[in-house]
Design a protein around this nucleic acid. Sequence first.
RNA 1: GGAGGGGUGGCAGAGCGGUCAAAUGCAACGGACUGUAAAUCCGUCGACUUUCGUCUACGAUGGUUCGAAUCCAUCCCCCUCCA
Length: 416
Amino acid sequence: MTQFKSQFVNLMVERGFYNQCTNESGFDEYLYECEKSGTPAVGYLGSDPTGDSLHVGHIVPLMMMRWFQKCGHKPLTLVGGATARIGDPSGKDKLRPFLSEETLAHNIEGLKKSFSKFLKFGDGKTDAVMVDNWDWFKDINYLAFLRDIGTYYSVNRMLTMDSVKSRLDREQPMSFLEFNYMLLQGYDFCELYQKYGCRAQIAGSDQWGNITSGTELGRRKYDVELFGFTSPIITDSNGKKMGKSEGNAVWINEEKLPSYDYYQYFRNIGDAEVGKCLRIYTDLPMDEIRRLEALKDKEINEAKKILAYEATKICRGIDEANAAQETAVKLFEQGSAGGELPSISVNGDISVLDAFLQIGFVASKGEARRLIKQGGLKLNDATVSDENYVIKATDYINGEVKLSQGKKKHGLLKSA
RNA sequence: GGAGGGGUGGCAGAGCGGUCAAAUGCAACGGACUGUAAAUCCGUCGACUUUCGUCUACGAUGGUUCGAAUCCAUCCCCCUCCA
């Protein structure tokens, strides 16, 4: 298992993070030299602030950076204040809507928060540093940019890039604005090289074209070899991208998704994904992972619990992980309500319909009625059969009524 | 600027004067089976209403008609080709 010299590359391969590298042996050699001499290599991970939080789909490169840092290297996290104003065409058919300045500022704050859950920021040698490409793009002069950078790009070559080609093949329009995206990302890489000596870019495989744009620019303009390292796109057994739960994205930031739900997302992962997810979403040592993924049938649930706990711990902290786990145990293994559940307070009696509507489990009374007909709503674990039922004082146990929708959605009704 | 095509429910995509709250597929949700899994099967999937039914919806606004997602007019937006 040690076909590579550097700790980092070996780790990546072993844990399933490795998809493609611009120069495998070169990168390995470079990192090995850095690791041996105790000089941190600098690598960056970019993300455009098109939303105000990252979601589990972004965790893969984040975890790579986390390992990168653990191996004694220095991570840079780049937020694309400038590139978000253009829109990355990779994997998209349509031009992105433009974002307002306020939205951008808000999103950047959200991203910083997401990043800081996985990486240690600060002033130390291997501490992560946040940069914004708006800083160097906002004052750039168009003619100067064309002359300094544009000369190194061949349109012939750009047209063969996947992000461009797929649009053209599908006869989807692509604006000149988007066409320029790869120049900007290429420029970013070189800028970080100049400023921080950054020679590595880590990202998802969809960024390959944009990464090579940077490595080629580096070679032509600065005569330096930059490295790109990508992860595979993580999919579930149905080939779908990871990251959706009940139709909603699984967000990293807690204000977008309660820790309990974050925990549950990993708890409910498919059997076939357990090993893969343990490698990617937790820091557990490989020996432990190999033991866990060997579990079969019912026992695999133990592995899922550990996965959920460990993943939550990294992203939400140990307290939140404990609380989420405790709630889950109470709810599923002991059948009582836990404290981490969503709750609402009411005065006096309330109809079941309104109760479920207010707690947000149903979007309308009609939906609540339908669920009752289908036997999908429960009060204190008893199926509701009468849609006109009114919850009264006698239904409260210790001042609470447990509301359940389906098997997994639970909440509490408290008397005010 | 010219010519043509189009805007329908979360998405994709039918419908082209009444039988349309709108086919079909995907996604989603509930139930059964299980292990808080997967697969499968059954059911649901605009709002209000116990049922009847009422209301709001097919880009926007007006109009024609007993009746419009469907026809007409104007406007807005998108796409393709030509200049």
